[in-house]
Design a protein around this nucleic acid. Structure first.
Lengths: 205, 205
DNA sequence: TTTTCAATCCCTGAAAAACAGGATATTTAC
DNA sequence: GTAAATATCCTGTTTTTCAGGGATTGAAAA
């Protein structure tokens, strides 16, 4: 029984690379590929793969959302996240959304085969390098922000001072200061610069 | 006469992808690949390709620097920059350093062949998408930063204060302050928050 | 060769943010 | 119904950043 593989990635080189690596594998059947989330969902209405290798960055939708959607509709499919270069902060979200594993894009052929084999056994596969990096990002766990905090965060990134924000939001400057304090502590940031950086990395702004 | 191709990229999937796409091309001879700048330079001491496809991000050295070095030593080699996903701000620098063209990593087979053919005729090849994106970054005229400014920018984003940076870089706080002022004015930013935000948007950090 | 640019250093004073350590209504969730 | 979370406000002090100058050195470009 061959394992049916499907790939979603917007980079033809990655698709071609994986295709050529898996080409002559006896236990692997390449059933197709998609360049975006839309085509992927259309394809799944016709064919059900065993494993989907899914890029985290897609043009029309994030792999994180697509993962959730696919698992919801087709719970038997195993998903392996394909991480682009440094965006590992999102992979834990992908795993939360039902992915069974993830690979870095510099993965070698044996690694890919290992990943497919592992997830087919209903186990979780995490690439070594990626695991290291996730440990790092786990520590700086993404905080939950309140509506107001997000608002202040965005205004901050646009360069508003506390006073200007207080005028804009019709509150006192001390209130803004409090939100700011909360933001700094939630992100474990030392100052504005690192706060904005972390927040952009974690896609809050 | 076959065109001899060499590739430098730290992602095996990209290498495999290009290899498989060029495999059966009669006019193309694949003479090898390297995963980093060091191996690339070693290889060039033994074999001279006609065209190098070169990733902008390498583990040991930036493609931008490697490009300069290779062109200096081997002026006959044509270099095509391979851009990772969104880092187009560096591509113009790569062209400045002697590259003859660039491709996005989602390039299709005909595009790659077209690029190789074009640069072999001593013409410049710019992929469509990439050209568009370069226009965009041109419009929101991304400032050119100096080595030191980038360094300071990165440290800022990590939350270092001027004093801490001065200790780290062995200069006085006033020097850091000057770099900071230049950054603010180059980005037209009102304060640190908007500076970091703009810099991340423009992929400097 | 002159000029420009990068990197370094210095100064003053004002503005803004960070830090500490509170308080009080109002929702929301259990 | 009570506890937790949210949003609001307060008074200070200390630290950092910002704005505006000016100046020197060395390297690279014109």
């Amino acid at each position: 029984m061959k394992t049916r593989i499907f790939i979603v990635d917007d980079h033809s080189m990655v698709i071609e690379g994986i295709r050529s690596m898996l080409q002559n594998e006896p236990h692997i059947e390449w059933i197709g590929h998609a360049n975006d989330a839309g085509s992927c969902l259309s394809f799944l209405q016709l064919h059900i793969p065993d494993v989907i290798l899914m890029d985290i960055n897609l043009p029309d939708k994030s792999g994180i959302d697509l993962c959730k959607e696919v698992i919801l509709k087709y719970p038997t499919i195993k998903i392996v996240g394909l991480s682009s270069f440094n965006q590992l902060s999102f992979i834990s979200k992908m795993l939360d959304n039902g992915a069974s594993g993830y690979l870095l894009k510099n993965a070698s052929k044996p690694e890919i085969l290992q990943a497919i084999e592992t997830v087919m056994k209903r186990k979780r596969y995490l690439s070594l390098e990626a695991e290291e990096m996730i440990k790092k990002t786990d520590q700086e766990d993404a905080p939950t922000l309140t509506r107001r905090e997000i608002e202040v965060l965005k205004l901050m990134s646009e360069g508003y001072t506390n006073y200007e924000m207080s005028e804009k939001l019709f509150v006192s400057t001390t209130t803004i200061d409090t939100h700011r304090k909360h933001l700094l502590s939630k992100f474990n940031a030392k100052n504005t610069a690192s706060l904005i950086w972390l927040a952009t990395q974690m896609k809050y702004i």
